[in-house]
């Protein structure tokens, strides 16, 4: 019974991707038909063509180095942006002056077009650092806004309980604030993860660092290797989804808080 339920769940989980792959195949077929088989690969390649390109790229030695470099940059930006966002959220909630100073600045960061930041930071620093800085800058406001809201919405009855039961400030943070913030943090990092990849790869496309997925995407566009462009995009999507899944697993384990 258990295995048949598991099989059923597995089949149901495959249905949405199968549907969208089918839709992609159908549209590619229509494009191919409309251009009479002359250059549909430039407009919309078939899923199988993209898969072939992906297998070819993955078989080449530079592929994994390129993936690791981009992953390192985006993760570094993500971690620094998350930490900075968390610290600023605490300061914003703890001190009214910090709130007044930081809130407008972070809102300006959030509203500024990412392309402006990329070009400005490219002027100020080494091109290899730009994607990480951009990823961090995109993550920071999301984490800040979510965590600041979470801190403000922490159940006042539980906070009063912690005072009445003489919890030390670190104990209050560990037993009340951190578990209360978990859903806000999860929401922030899953949203931020997508943003970090989008903005980080966009920065790589504009800055063309030595080993980067964005550089490969830029080259694919330059040499009209559209299946390669799709394949690199698929790599970014896969990495983003895998990291999001990992974060969810880690946060699920953290659900119970800590034993002091």
């Amino acid at each position: 019974m258990a295995w048949s339920k598991g099989l059923k769940n597995f089949i149901f989980s495959l249905l949405p991707p199968a549907f969208w792959l089918g839709a992609w195949q159908l549209v590619a077929l229509l494009v191919d038909h409309s251009v009479n088989g002359r250059g549909n690969e430039l407009l919309l390649p078939y899923p199988a063509t993209v898969l072939t390109a992906l297998v070819r790229l993955a078989g080449a030695a530079p592929f994994w180095g390129t993936v690791a470099s981009s992953l390192g940059r985006i993760l570094a930006g993500m971690i620094v942006g998350t930490l900075a966002g968390a610290v600023l959220a605490v300061l914003t909630c703890a001190f009214r002056l910090c709130d007044r100073l930081l809130s407008p600045a972070i809102r300006v960061i959030r509203a500024t077009p990412v392309a402006s930041f990329i070009l400005l930071i490219l002027l100020w620093t080494d091109r290899n650092f730009v994607p990480a800085i951009i990823a961090g800058l995109m993550v920071l406001p999301v984490v800040w806004a979510n965590l600041a809201r979470g801190i403000r919405e922490t159940d006042p009855q539980l906070l009063e309980f912690s005072r009445a039961y003489r919890f030390s400030p670190p104990k209050t943070v560990k037993l009340i604030y951190l578990p209360s913030l978990r859903p806000y943090f999860l929401s922030a990092v899953t949203t931020a993860m997508g943003l970090a990849w989008k903005s980080g790869v966009a920065a790589e496309v504009l800055c063309i660092p030595k080993e980067a997925i964005g550089t490969q995407i830029y080259n694919s566009k330059l040499y009209l290797e559209i299946p390669d462009l799709f394949a690199w995009t698929a790599v970014v999507v896969a990495l983003s989804l895998i990291l999001e899944r990992l974060i969810r697993v880690v946060l699920d384990r953290w659900k119970g808080g800590w034993t002091l």
Binding site: Q157, L158, F161, A164, K171, L175, P179, G256, G257, T259
Partner: peptide
């Protein structure tokens, strides 16, 4: 030692942890 009118339990702590916490 004050018992609030509401239970004010921590949903993420077990029964035993509620005691060891205090």
């Amino acid at each position: 030692a004050f018992l609030f009118q509401e239970n004010r339990l921590l949903p993420w702590r077990t029964v035993e942890q509620h005691l060891t916490d205090v």
